[in-house]
């Protein structure tokens, strides 16, 4: 999945109106909350190449960190 596709999916997961970029700081996005973590994990379950641990999602600081979890 390329970066643009990923950002579109993430906007969907978070149900946010914000414009996300690869270096957007997650904790500054209002919708990056426990609800989004769970939706993001569900997304990983579908598209990630390797298993993503909940702690890795919690540890992510910027959008790019999440992208790397999907793509590694």
């Amino acid at each position: 999945m390329n970066e643009q596709e990923f950002i579109e999916k993430l906007v969907d997961v978070m149900d946010t109106e914000e414009e996300l970029q690869m270096d957007t700081v997650l904790e500054e996005v209002e919708e990056w909350d426990s609800l989004s973590y769970v939706s993001f994990l569900a997304l990983c379950s579908k598209v990630a190449k390797t298993h993503v641990e909940p702690q890795e999602v919690r540890d992510a600081k910027v959008v790019r960190d999440l992208y790397q979890l999907i793509n590694r």
Binding site: S34, V38, L41, A42, H51, P54, V57, R58
Partner: peptide, 11 residues
């Protein structure tokens, strides 16, 4: 722990 439960239900 919502994330741990989600992880369990999807793995």
């Amino acid at each position: 722990d919502g994330m741990a439960i989600t992880d369990f239900t999807l793995k």
